[in-house]
Design a protein around this nucleic acid. Structure first.
Lengths: 305, 305
DNA sequence: CTTTGGAAG
DNA sequence: CTTCGAAAG
């Protein structure tokens, strides 16, 4: 999941480009962002005792080669959720299938093309039950969702469909957004839930570097933004924005092109979305922007349950 | 141009393979081959004054990244011939297009698929004339031949069509072999010629490690071997074999698979073939088997003209 | 720019 | 095993 258009970097001004006679805007230093230290207690003082990490790895095999698992061992979340694994189960690297820290591993793979999409969930403790997809044939062929039921909550990890270049898949995405919201609402009636993953949308202008230039690009169309708004209105909260309502320049994705990451020309596409009922348990949502190995960085959620 | 079948390595015995219960043959040390030093004079004592190098680079861009040009600068032939460049002219790395040592550069590219085939010739001195192909429509769409005319000789570099897995293109190859021979014979009537390149055939059993297992594989079929014999009978000589008639284990290609190069399980597919008239001028034909960057190694010809 | 699978070798 | 182009992001 990554953007492509020039607009991603347009606000930066190309260095020494002789392409056209552009107005050469903003040769300023890039505005970087660094997360504050992890807050390990909830608003009402409960101590954090649950840690989740979500990471769009953009190809599990390449990510493993780039030592993504070393970072995971250091971070050591209770549950690790991965998106865009792009890997058939038979091709999984031993480094991850044999990883003892996470005895309970679940893989969802695109049926026709294992090199596309795909998500995974690795758990230190065994869930009560694990399901795949959202219960609708048309959405469940691309290995995009794993749901794990734990005693007090559901954990859902998702890789939401990209609307595509030229928005060729925006119509499908709208259907997805509706059906996904219905799926989550149903779960939420049973137990509170945590949704994490690459939701493939930057919600508000604050959630990407170049909102003006991207209103017609996948990930920032009014339709996708509205889809996310609708989800929140159904009783969920964007935990990062809840904690840091004014924080600019906090992104989780940067296109590989045009040195976007070096210039922090990014998007916040990865989220922990919580049932409102879990708000009292929320301690922190960190953006681990230093962690390399993908065009997304990992995010980590601390809960006190 | 590379082989694929198990037979390539079969004579070596796989280390610790538990596949089948094989007779576990020849766990011997591999028989390596090292070229003797360059002989820089002809039989009748003329001093070498012309140096040609031919190298199937298996992808020019990857080869440049792997520092192939550093080796070329060290070797410093008068003419450098490359095969399997797999590169459209617009995509050529600057490292080579700007190379000052070779002011005269010629590129042949496959018309439909620039990432397939392709040959190049880089000259320190400008040829009188350069032509592409062999003058037959059906053969000249794949960027396989460049001919340079110099005052006293023609230099032809070729990447001969692979007969393919399952010999799917063996029939075409037979047509090619005939037409190519006719083309060279015609040239030879005007001036003596030097043909170099990946001729995609190991001529005799001595020219590959595992002749027994490859009689039905591309590069060692009776048809391809006969094609090469026919060429020689038309008045040409295989300069390496002329100089070293009994030399075993002298190869120019090793499949990337199964550590074939480490075990010297190879094929001699790259040649300098000379008009008989040039035999008195022949000094040496070296196989630079240490040079890395491709699944073929370069070969170098010394002439005294 | 980078990943993947597929064709070719 | 490694190249390349294509599709996807």
């Amino acid at each position: 999941m990554k953007r492509t258009k020039k607009e991603d970097g347009a606000a930066e001004g190309e260095n020494g480009s002789t392409k056209k006679a552009k107005p050469a805007k903003e040769p300023e230093a890039p505005i970087l962002y660094e997360d504050p230290p992890d807050k390990l207690s909830s608003k009402d003082g409960k101590e954090a005792n649950l840690k989740f990490t979500s990471w769009n790895v953009d190809g599990l095999r390449a990510w493993v080669k780039k030592k993504g698992l070393d970072w995971v061992r250091e971070e050591s979340p209770d549950v690790l959720c991965l998106q865009e694994t792009k890997c058939a189960e038979k091709d999984l690297p031993k480094d991850i299938t044999l990883m003892e820290e996470y005895p309970h591993k679940y893989w969802a793979v695109a049926e026709e093309n294992a090199g596309y999409s795909g998500v995974a969930m690795l758990c230190k403790n065994e869930p009560i039950k694990v399901t795949y997809g959202i219960g609708k044939e048309e959405h469940d062929k691309e290995g995009r969702v794993i749901t794990a039921e734990f005693p007090n909550y559901f954990l859902v990890t998702a890789y939401v469909p990209n609307a595509g270049k030229g928005l060729v898949r925006l119509d499908y995405r709208k259907t997805w957004d509706e059906d996904f919201k219905a799926y989550l609402s149903d779960l939420d009636k049973q137990k509170p839930l945590i949704l994490c993953g690459d939701l493939n949308v930057a919600h508000q202008e604050i959630d990407l570097k170049n909102p003006k230039g991207n209103k017609k690009n996948a990930g920032f169309t009014p339709e996708e933004r509205e889809g996310f708004s609708q989800l929140l209105e159904a009783g969920f909260v964007d935990s990062f924005r809840e904690l840091y309502p004014e924080q600019q320049y906090a992104y989780t994705f940067w296109t590989y092109m045009m040195n976007a990451r070096g210039k922090n020309v990014g998007w916040r596409l990865d989220y922990f979305v919580l049932s409102s009922a879990l708000l009292p348990n929320l301690c922190d949502n960190k953006i681990r922007s230093k962690a390399m190995g993908s065009d997304h960085c990992p995010i980590t959620l601390h809960l006190a349950i």
